[in-house]
Design a protein around this nucleic acid. Structure first.
Lengths: 198, 198, 198, 198
DNA sequence: AATGAATGAGCATTCATTCAT
DNA sequence: TATGAATGAATGCTCATTCAT
């Protein structure tokens, strides 16, 4: 692999990745055949293997690129914000925005986590996100703004809230992304009991 | 199907479901073949189709039974507790305990949610759990114990925290179930900022 | 693999090997598809893979069995003959007889020798045959019956004569196996010049 | 085909034939793809089909040219030698020299003989060689120098010795070409028993 | 209830060949 | 002459399911 591609070639590759990502999310990775993908694009089967060495590698590429993009979105929003609690809030909001705009990729992340072959691909990027977020939590604790608890665990809890709210709400079209984000932020910051409760 | 089974027959069925559940979780539902399952148990293929009409139905059965069991555990613990906040806490703890004891089933839940064919099976039971929890949240709000926000959203947030902490922590053996539960409860109740913060 | 087979199963396996060996010899190993083989036998494709783990393994099995059979034939004929020159002669005759009766396998031997994947399978058995024959040559040299030259080389020369005469003559039906054998024996024993020439 | 080629074109064609011949011998004709050949030379696929109408034709050309070259070598050496026995000897020596210098082509000859599509290509040239050699044998018989046996069979025997010794010895680097030739000549002339034996 | 054998549609992948540029 | 891209029939192989015993 690692082919030198012309502009046309890069277009094709992108088409394949986009189309396949949507089909994988809608019908499942395994049940979606390579034939289905190339037929959907109206091209011959050889085209697929000109751009990807296997169906497995295609999903791997989709996952890698999606994660890169998600992280890019998070970083762009957070850059320049000094307040750690605000950084956390903006991270939550940008993640929900991205997941809203790329629901099919969120589904693929969830699937990939359940298969030994794909889970390792998620690992690296997830760790970066996790570390970034944990750092903001630590900063917040030092500042006295955040409750003194294990930062790693707080991070996981935040990610869980974001993930589940996104999944449940955005899947059903019942809510707009910014409303979901408002609630997620409030819950993460104040919990169930809210300010001044014990 | 719906066969009248002898005691021995029920054992076989159970064996098949347990073994298959572990294989599905470890190797994925699609990549795990029926042949692999019956070979692992040292029986012929006929046995499989005596007890299940298809591979798909096998997973469906596994999912249904697992959800029933999880709900049973939750209910047993909560029964008789009048305080809604305590009910929520005990629900969180019992869920984490169960997921800790049945990690492979947690993986199957996650996978099932990504495939159109299996997601509906999760739906019904999830809704019950969701409704139960939402009711406790509503009670808490009425009591003035819980912050006045959309109960449905708070519920989803709680479930997200439980799910993600369980997944991340229990998968790596870094923590004991009760420690994870302590943190989950604290986060859900107090959020990041804790009592007395704005 | 290594399946426990019933009598019926053993028959099927044999059918597949025999049929495939003839097709491979007639049409070439690579150009002959698995589909062609199972169609020729009027069975489904799965049957093939019930008995052989791959097309490659099928040829390997054919080669192994053929070599075993050829050696069995050689040994049966030579057993009990003390004179080394007579042993050589009888070895030549039995080989030509076997190759005459199994021309298609002779073709497969020749093909297998040209492919890296199959050549090693021939090696072991060929070495045994080679060593047996070399021993007779050595005995003949010690007896003073055979010219004092490198026994290994003489062995290879004999095998070359047998192989080439068989290939050329038997392929064209121009000669009967025993006539070919007479000539091969005479050439190997006396060369071109014959007795009393320098 | 039959293209009028520039000097550069002839070079390219030669490159393709040489490279392909080595790959075919090392990896087998069928398993070696056209893509592999053009990649090995760092050119595009169009180049291949500019010089050859098909992969099949490429091997045919390789075989034809190799046989022409082998015959040229044999003829050059024999020219002007009147003694038929010496002509045979020199033919053997020149063949072994050539096969030693072109081992990969020897492998291709052997492969080609096993496939219906390529065997006919060998036929014509082999017949010429065969006829030449047979003529020398006949001359030797007339002179009373060679044992009175079927010249055609003696010819095949000689070719078998040469082929097998070359294949076995030269493949393993254990011997130099001229030593192998000495033995081959001695065996062909004197057989196993040598002068003065019956 | 259980087994070994069989089925055959379907899958991922390959590859000789062609085409537009 | 040469290239990257495309074609699509064909291949080896898998696997859920069924059948005969």
């Amino acid at each position: 692999m690692e082919r030198r591609l012309t502009a046309r070639g890069r277009d094709r590759r992108r088409q394949l990745m986009d189309f396949a990502a949507h089909r994988f999310a809608a019908g499942g990775y395994h049940p979606t055949s390579v034939a289905e993908i190339v037929q959907g694009l109206g091209v011959g089967k050889g085209v697929f293997y000109w751009y990807f060495s296997s169906k497995e590698e295609l999903l791997a590429e989709i996952l890698r690129e999606a994660q890169l993009d998600l992280r890019r979105a998070q970083r762009a929003v957070i850059a320049g914000e000094p307040d750690p609690v605000r950084r956390i809030e903006m991270g939550i909001r940008s993640s929900i925005d991205w997941l809203d705009a790329n629901r099919h990729l969120a589904t693929l992340f969830q699937f990939a986590a359940t298969e030994t072959r794909f889970a390792p691909i998620l690992r690296a990027s997830q760790e970066l996100t996790h570390n970034d977020l944990t750092q903001h939590v630590k900063d917040g604790i030092i500042d006295g703004r955040i409750r003194d608890a294990d930062p790693a665990i707080l991070t996981l809890a935040i990610l869980g809230v974001v993930g589940n709210l996104t999944r449940a709400f955005l899947a059903t079209e019942r809510a707009r992304a910014d409303e979901v984000a408002d609630t997620a932020v409030a819950f993460c910051l104040q919990g169930l009991l809210g300010p001044g409760q014990a």
